[in-house]
Design a binder for these strands. Structure first.
Length: 282
DNA sequence: GAGAGTGTTGTAAC
DNA sequence: GGTTACAACACTCT
């Protein structure tokens, strides 16, 4: 679920509701989820919210930044006056009550509104760092897929020495950030390139097509608010994304390929479920 | 009821 | 140095 489009959507919504609010109390229900000294944030005001790779940054007036990685199942829910600020959230039992069974961190603001971090599998984390050490955190990450830094030449230079399947290469964060499993499958289908091709075997023309395909898919997913399977991804208002209704390959095993009418197959590549059309992805 | 599979990614081992 | 395997965890599906 949370891939770049989801994180982008969540960061934007978060920004619209938490900027300007001051923290009164932070309750940590799962100690491993919160890294750093939460006390530093008491009485501090959130001045900005942004996103880098799949990490959400909440910037505070005292130059500390609270980073959040949602990993597989993390989600933020914002509550004001006892109600979620917009209805329509899925009726999963773990979202009916807040804080709930899977709430790991609860942030109470001075105006009595609340922000909940829910994460079933506990892979996600919140990390408080000084603004000055942000660069260290991001040093191993490549540029975002939607950044102008990612060009055909850049990708060609990264793929040149890699023998690994192209699907794994585009999911490597040191090359580009923001292409997760679902969008990797769909981008390769749109580009009509087999996920198994060694990265270094792609021609300049193919890399060019793949790059524009990835941007098309990611932008479309952002437009639709991300992807929801089994109601496990919701934005901070509890609303589900709708890219899953637009998905080209992921979860469509046995269905027709939109490119050529062939049959979408599922296989495993690098330990990850991989969907592709063997007829047109060559 | 046991066992496999799940959208992420850092780390260790090969 | 590139690549793979696995762990972190809780839940659903077969």
């Amino acid at each position: 679920m949370p891939e770049l489009p989801e994180v982008e959507t969540i960061a934007k919504k978060l920004k619209s509701v938490v900027v300007g609010r001051k923290i009164e109390e932070i309750q940590i229900f799962n100690p491993k989820t919160f890294q750093g000294d939460a006390q530093l944030l008491l009485s501090q005001e959130i001045v900005d919210v942004s996103r880098r790779a799949k990490i959400i940054e909440m910037v505070f007036a005292n130059d500390y930044v609270l980073l959040t990685h949602l990993k597989m199942t993390g989600q933020y829910l914002f509550q004001n006056d006892g109600d979620l600020i917009a209805g329509g959230h899925p009726t999963n039992d773990w979202q009916e009550q807040l804080p709930g069974k899977h709430t790991r961190v609860q942030i109470n603001f001075e105006d009595k509104s609340k922000l909940f971090f829910n994460d079933m599998r506990k892979f996600g984390w919140l990390r408080l760092v000084a603004a000055s050490s942000l660069e260290t955190v991001y040093s191993a990450l490549g540029p975002d897929i939607i950044s102008p830094e990612v060009t055909t030449d850049y990708l060609l230079s990264q793929f040149k020495r890699r023998k690994m399947p192209i699907k794994q290469a585009i999911m490597l964060n040191e090359i580009v950030c923001g292409v997760g499993n679902i969008y990797a499958c769909d981008s390769l289908n749109l580009a009509k390139i087999s996920p198994f091709r060694p990265a270094q075997s792609l021609s300049r023309e193919e890399v060019d097509i793949l790059l524009s395909s990835m941007k098309v898919i990611i932008n479309k997913a952002i437009e639709y608010g991300g992807t929801t399977f089994d109601g496990k991804y919701v934005d901070i208002e509890g609303k589900a994304g709708s890219y899953q209704t637009k998905v080209l390959t992921y979860g469509r095993e046995g269905k027709n390929c939109y490119n050529c009418g062939g049959t979408i197959q599922k296989t495993k590549l690098g330990g990850r479920g991989t969907y592709f059309c063997p007829d047109c992805q060559i």
